[in-house]
Simulated scan of single mutants.
Amino acid sequence: MVPYVDELAARARSLARADGAARPVIGIAGPPGAGKSTLAEAVVAALDGLAALVPMDGFHLADAELRRLGRTDRKGAPDTFDAYGYGALLARVRAPRPGETVYAPCFERELEQPVAGALPVSAGVSVVITEGNYLLLDEEPWSSVVRPQLDEVWWVAVDDAVRIERLIARHVRFGKSPSAARAWVLRSDEANARQVASGRERADLVVDVD
């Protein structure tokens, strides 16, 4: 069960604007494996049609581009995302044209690839929830392109040992051997976790899911 989901949904609902002003976008940030997706999905479900989810992971660079850049061994690092494209999409969902459905990409874990146009954000949506590791990263272009598009950012806090075991299990579930999964988590995912750790201090709210 996701803790505090009713309170978080009420907080999100309170940000919705009835005057036709920009649609609020709430970010959910935290290190890899913290439970951002689970929390975001629970809040969207609790809002019962008023919200849509637009994950940052849809802006992963494709593997072909990572090979060109020589970055396949660090897939998931900040520079392996299209941060400018993500910021532009958030700007669109904040201020859509009348009647417009905005289509966002998703990340298909079975393929380990982004899929364009997979997530509709309809004109009737009052709040957009987005989640990802780097929403509070104090580095360019994230700090100037992504953070200004977010009305609030909530940080998901969880015990590191629990988080690491979740990550290993996830990688195994999607095809890695247990030893390869552990090696990837401790080398790549944990490097990303250390990089985003200071974001907790910049969050508007800390949600402790322990």
Rank of each mutant, 00 (worst) to 15 (best):
M1A: 13
A183M: 14
A161R: 09
V172A: 03
E7I: 12
D57P: 00
D210Y: 02
V5A: 01
P148H: 02
Y86P: 07
E190M: 15
T101E: 04
G35K: 10
D138G: 03
P148C: 01
L47F: 02
V54R: 00
G199A: 13
P55D: 00
L39D: 12
G33Q: 05
L50N: 04
M1T: 09
C106M: 15
L47G: 09
L53E: 02
V145N: 01
R68F: 03
G124C: 04
M1F: 08
V209H: 07
A29L: 08
D208L: 08
L135Q: 06
A52R: 01
A9V: 00
R163L: 04
P24T: 06
A83M: 02
G85R: 06
V125T: 13
D6W: 10
L15A: 11
R17M: 05
A95Q: 12
P120G: 02
P32A: 11
A183V: 10
E131H: 14
P31I: 07
I164K: 07
R170Y: 14
G199P: 15
I168W: 07
F107V: 05
S14C: 07
L89G: 06
S188Q: 09
R202A: 13
D208R: 15
D57L: 01
D73E: 11
A42W: 12
R202M: 06
S143G: 01
D79F: 11
G30K: 07
M56W: 03
G76I: 10
D6Y: 04
W155K: 11
V185T: 10
R71P: 03
T80M: 07
A118L: 14
S126Q: 15
G58R: 08
G87E: 01
D159P: 02
A9H: 00
S177A: 11
A95V: 13
A203W: 09
V128S: 00
A40F: 05
A104D: 11
F59P: 06
V128N: 00
G124F: 05
V25C: 00
G70F: 07
V207N: 14
A169Y: 06
L47I: 03
A64M: 05
A34P: 04
E152V: 05
G33Y: 06
L66M: 09
R173T: 12
L136T: 15
V156H: 13
L111F: 07
D208A: 09
